[in-house]
């Protein structure tokens, strides 16, 4: 079993002039200490506007700072709100973190479950719509990460032109992919897509267990042609140690 540390940079009140800065800098210390203690992963959420609850609005910048203070620990986006960003810029940020961290980037993707956030940023927060556009954006980003010359991408919501997207990630064909699972049905969907699942403990052990099993079964039964990434997560064997052609 691997161990990870997660943060969303909470800044509970009361606030002094330097409270936010203190929390940021202390969180950097936590991750360096976690690496020394044997934690294998650090996961950082992306949140906007949620004062006190989550001040992690620019995870790529925080993770970039960590890339220079750590050597081994994996640095994970948990997760990038796919409907809220230009896909080219997502690919560029993921690849940049991978370069700065020498191949330690983990790429978690989600749709953004808080309408207050998604709409606040100017996007449609309808769950079905956000899931669909998020899936398309992720597919486009994987193409950008994987190929030196992105051939363009057409879908229901995108018509992206061919471009050479730089920088390229260190990890080939791309950093490991994960879905955020705020509800249990996502486990099976992640399995079918061949990506990892980041679950949350709003559920009991007994509630989670069948969904972990469903995830494993879905990955085994999935049609590789439908995988989002170019390789599947290999549970209990370390991540991404076996390539599988699409």
């Amino acid at each position: 079993m691997k161990f990870g540390l997660m943060s969303q940079l909470q800044v509970p009140k009361p606030w002094a002039a330097d409270t936010e800065k203190t929390v940021y800098w202390q969180n950097l210390e936590h991750v360096a200490a976690a690496e020394d203690s044997g934690f294998s992963y650090f996961w950082l959420t992306e949140q906007h506007f949620f004062a006190e609850i989550g001040h992690s609005a620019c995870p790529e910048m925080f993770l970039a700072a960590l890339s220079q203070r750590t050597r081994k620990i994996r640095l994970g986006f948990a997760v990038i709100l796919m409907p809220c960003h230009n896909p080219f810029m997502v690919a560029e940020r993921v690849a940049t973190l991978d370069v700065l961290s020498n191949g330690r980037c983990e790429f978690g993707a989600g749709r953004g479950t808080a309408a207050y956030v998604v709409e606040g940023l100017g996007f449609n927060a309808d769950a079905e719509y956000a899931r669909e556009i998020g899936r398309e954006a992720l597919e486009a980003v994987v193409h950008m990460l994987e190929q030196e010359h992105f051939p363009g991408y057409k879908s229901a919501h995108f018509d992206l032109p061919p471009r050479q997207v730089v920088p390229r990630p260190i990890q080939r064909p791309h950093p490991p992919l994960w879905y955020a699972a705020s509800n249990l049905d996502t486990f099976e969907r992640a399995g079918a897509a061949g990506v990892g699942v980041l679950g949350v403990t709003r559920y009991t052990h007994a509630e989670v267990k069948p969904h972990v099993q469903a995830y494993r079964a879905a990955i085994k039964a999935a049609d590789p042609a439908r995988f989002v990434g170019r390789f599947v997560q290999q549970p209990r064997r370390g991540l991404c140690d076996r390539l599988r052609a699409r």
């Binding site: 079993m1 691997k2 161990f3 990870g4 540390l5 997660m6 943060s7 969303q8 940079l9 909470q10 509970p12 929390v23 202390q26 969180n27 936590h30 294998s40 992963y41 996961w43 980041l198 679950g199 052990h205 989670v208 267990k209 972990v212 099993q213 494993r216 549970p235 209990r236």
Partner: peptide, 14 residues
């Protein structure tokens, strides 16, 4: 025992 392969702790809370 639920079958997960990574345990993620959140300490920086509240």
């Amino acid at each position: 025992a639920t079958g997960i392969d990574q345990m993620i702790f959140m300490f920086q809370i509240g």
